[in-house]
Nucleic acid binder design. Structure first.
Lengths: 153, 153
DNA sequence: GTGTCTGCAAATCGTTTGCATAGCA
DNA sequence: TGCTATGCAAACGATTTGCAGACAC
């Protein structure tokens, strides 16, 4: 059903904007949703080229912008210099835990933090429309690696 | 006294790394700390050039990287495509409220949110070393502007 | 002196765009 | 047919780098 509503959103959006469905677009979109995670355009492009060598980066950029505009994907920026996209259809808002050693990204959500953010904003006269919260640190595995290294040294 | 410790940190860092104090570096650093706020390299460069027309952007980039490395400045990324720097010496950790209409940036800190972030991370096996939290929305003035517009329309 | 800086311009990196051609409806 | 999409390569904006001369110590 998630699948259906995704296609529905996409079809409606494309119809409303006079956009056409093409082989490349479908391939890119299918690949994006089937791979999942937080993909950079570069990564997605290489996945797509496993199916069709001729697709250009430009098309991947254009398609991801389209998915972002119709709300099916969210552009994210984790400080590594490239934009990453994540699937957004019917998903709750969430934030990220990022391991600075291995790059693993874990999603989480916490209503109490969100409520407190609103409270802080209100105190400063702001009305919050969106926010970004990223926690950087070491995941369980990398903590172990780090302590092993210390022991070895 | 803040000034003294800043210079102390800088001098120690420069001595340890065999770096030299130059006219341009001093000018850039002084300008950065005296202007304050969240400066892009471009903005800082233009301020610096009011004093010395000959300074190149490259030097400003190199100097800000230096300040960042020795911990006196923090690089920030508010999604407008350019890196912004803020003074960091002896300041508490804080987060940002950003007005999406006028670009105003307000700093705030909230220990309870930070505590909850740590708790969430722990639940996922992470140890947090740093984080980024930005709340985007409308500041008081821009809310008024927005509602006036609605009234006019 | 000698090794670090600086300015300049060229290079890079991620991303966007113009244009002629290919493709969907 | 008519209009959108694609691929390509050139254009972009922010940032970095190689190099020869300038400067600090």
């Amino acid at each position: 059903m998630n699948k259906e509503s995704k296609d529905a959103v996409l079809n409606r959006y494309m119809a409303q904007h006079g956009l056409k469905s093409t082989r490349q677009r479908s391939l890119i979109i299918d690949t994006f949703f089937s791979v999942g995670g937080h993909l950079s355009v570069e990564e997605l492009w290489s996945k797509v080229r496993e199916q069709d060598t001729k697709v250009s980066v430009a098309t991947v950029y254009r398609t991801m912008k389209l998915l972002n505009d119709c709300g099916l994907a969210h552009a994210r920026n984790f400080g590594d210099g490239q934009t990453r996209y994540e699937a957004a259809a019917g998903r709750e808002h969430h934030d990220h835990l990022i391991c600075t050693r291995c790059g693993q990204i874990v999603e989480f959500e916490n209503d109490r933090i969100e409520a407190m953010q609103d409270a802080v904003a209100r105190k400063h006269g702001f009305i919050v429309t969106s926010h970004k919260m990223e926690l950087y640190g070491l995941c369980k595995d990398c903590q172990r690696t780090a302590s092993e290294r210390k022991t070895e040294a």
